[in-house]
């Protein structure tokens, strides 16, 4: 039977859904095997755990499936997010909020390494100065903390957890911070083109 003929949400919502769940479990496990095949830190036991957790999330989130893609594509996206989120969490679990907050404070005071200021062109020095003032004056401590987390490569879920908030609120915090910096640069007469050319690698 082709997938277009299977109404997955209906089968999974049914009281007797064991067979559909088992079939979906096989598909998700196979997908995660492909998605994570290049990761040396993922064992067969991890794949089984990720699959189990993914099935729980897929069943809990069935209402989020809009029907605008194949069901299995949506389910695989949920499973991949589940697995990658857990792998990122393990890698970054030792970072503390104190360290991140301290990084945010330093961002306001001395944001750039000395080489950035001494080896820069005049245009670049002006831009860095404007950016420094914007970071110090236009952003809240929480926004600076979130930005430091992002720039350090901390997973977004980890930033969310350390800030003690939810993903949407954290994204808004960061989005508002980026908008504030962009507006400040524009108000200082620095165009997007100038920024791009000044900081071209």
């Amino acid at each position: 039977m082709g997938e277009t003929e299977i109404n997955w949400p209906e089968l999974l919502r049914a009281a007797d859904n064991a067979s559909a769940v088992e079939q979906l479990r096989g598909l998700v496990l196979a997908a995660l095997r492909v998605a994570l095949r290049d990761r040396s830190d993922v064992s067969e036991a991890h794949l089984e755990d990720f699959t189990q957790e993914s099935i729980v999330r897929i069943l809990a989130q069935l209402d989020r499936f809009s029907g605008r893609s194949r069901f299995t594509t949506w389910a695989h996206a949920v499973a991949i997010n589940t697995a990658f989120t857990e792998l990122r969490r393990k890698r970054w679990q030792d970072v503390s909020l104190d360290a991140l907050t301290e990084g945010g404070r330093q961002l306001a005071e001395h944001p750039f390494a000395p080489a950035e200021s001494t080896e820069s062109s005049e245009e670049r020095t002006v831009l860095l100065d404007v950016l420094h003032r914007a970071i110090a004056e236009k952003l809240s401590e929480r926004q600076r903390t979130a930005i430091v987390g992002e720039l350090q490569g901390l997973p977004f879920d980890q930033v969310v957890a350390l800030l003690g908030t939810n993903r949407n609120a954290a994204y808004k915090l960061l989005h508002d911070a980026r908008k504030a910096l962009k507006q400040h640069l524009a108000a200082a007469g620095i165009s997007a083109e100038t920024i791009r050319s000044t900081f071209a690698p």
């Binding site: 360290a99 990084g103 961002l107 001395h110 944001p111 750039f112 390494a113 950035e116 900081f199």
Partner: peptide, 10 residues
């Protein structure tokens, strides 16, 4: 945290 390096500034 150290000040932002070139890559982080970019």
């Amino acid at each position: 945290m150290n000040p932002l390096n070139s890559q982080q500034v970019r």
